[in-house]
Amino acid sequence: MAAADPSDGHAPGASVAAACRDAGLVRLVATSDGDALAATGVLARALSAAGIPFQASVRSFPGDALGDGTDADVTVTVGATGGDVALDAHPASPAAYAAARELVPDAADPTLALAGVLAARAAPGDDPTTLAEDATAAGCEQRPGVGVPTADLVDGLAHTTFVYTPDSGDTEAYRTALAERDLPTERTADIDDDAGRRLASLLAFDAVRSGEAPPRAADAVERALRPHAGARCPFATVEGYAGVLDAVARRAPGTGVALALGHDAREAALDAWREHASAAHRAVRAADTSRYDGCVAVVTRTGPVETVARLVRDFRSPEPAVLVVGDGEAAAAGDAVDVGAALRTTAATANGTSHARGETAYARLDTSDPAGLIDAFREGLA
């Protein structure tokens, strides 16, 4: 069949819907991040409602899957270029939501799409679609509190990856902190706005109290405060949903796809979220860090490099760019810095490949020489 022209780079929802509408089989291949996973789920649910068969998967590099043998009539890449059509805008969820509305309006899930936008650290009102309005109509309204996925606030505060604090990963520390402030440990229907505001103040203070946090930390922690709650959300808050999607996209992609498709994967997803968060917080705490003019470099052998890069940038780095070098991989995060280009240069020196999403980038590398990678990244920033 004739597919929509992907040459414009950001295929609008109508073009994606047109490409999929008459397909006998659609293949969806997403990058391994929460926004792309959410966008895939939004589109997949609409395809299912329309009676269009599909396959869905998550890959660090979706291009790796394009050469695989498949019977699909249309391949949609989500979060990257390639395929017959590409939803490669950042965030991708609004365009996926528009495509879903074109296919089957009633099947378009604004709560999942909003979670994707939040996973991309974007503002819900910045897209030109009806997503923000539809999410509000679906009951997604902000309220005082913290954006965690669990009703257990100790669990949520200790494992959120929206924020890094000196107590991140330590449930007993947060249990003590809540008790000392006479704050609830469970989110219940009768929790009042005052308690929600005091919870938010606790997390905001924790994010900056160590004295190591850069000025941008105050803005970064805002994304975890005054969360959206929604009747159709499978987690306590939509921000919490976003955090879980991002974690499972990276740590347990099969579980992530099941969650995004609406299957009963909540508990498995929460387990993966906790494991991902614990690994990230340990890696930030134990990071072997070097500071240079314009960037901070971190070497880790255990942490999820993309999450570590973002947390170090937001809550630890005095410089605008962060490079995290892991075992055969690297990630970068920037604050008004083109880390995508710098990491692409770095990957080229190590027989690797990379892709960028917003202000972050990821690379697969063929080297065990962190010093050489750091030098290449610094040259790429220059």
Rank of each mutant, 00 (worst) to 15 (best):
H281I: 09
H281V: 07
H281T: 09
H281P: 13
R282F: 11
R282E: 13
R282L: 10
A283D: 08
A283W: 10
A283N: 05
A283L: 13
A283H: 08
V284F: 13
V284W: 12
R285P: 12
R285Y: 11
R285M: 09
R285D: 15
A286V: 13
A286P: 03
A287V: 09
A287F: 08
A287E: 04
D288K: 04
D288L: 06
D288V: 03
T289K: 05
T289Y: 05
T289R: 15
S290T: 14
R291G: 14
R291H: 15
R291W: 09
R291Q: 12
R291D: 15
Y292C: 02
Y292F: 15
Y292A: 08
Y292I: 03
Y292P: 04
D293M: 03
G294K: 02
G294T: 10
C295L: 15
C295E: 10
V296N: 00
V296E: 03
V296K: 00
V296D: 02
A297W: 02
V299W: 07
V299C: 04
V299Q: 06
V299H: 08
T300D: 14
T300W: 11
T300R: 01
T300E: 07
T300C: 04
R301L: 11
R301Y: 09
T302S: 14
T302G: 12
G303H: 08
G303Y: 14
P304A: 00
V305P: 05
V305L: 02
V305H: 01
V305I: 10
V305T: 14
E306Y: 00
T307S: 12
T307Q: 11
T307N: 06
T307C: 06
V308C: 03
A309G: 02
L311N: 03
L311D: 07
L311K: 03
V312R: 05
V312P: 12
V312E: 08
V312G: 09
V312M: 12
V312D: 09
V312A: 11
R313F: 09
R313G: 05
R313P: 12
R313W: 11
F315E: 09
F315H: 13
F315N: 06
F315I: 12
R316W: 15
R316T: 13
S317Y: 13
S317T: 08
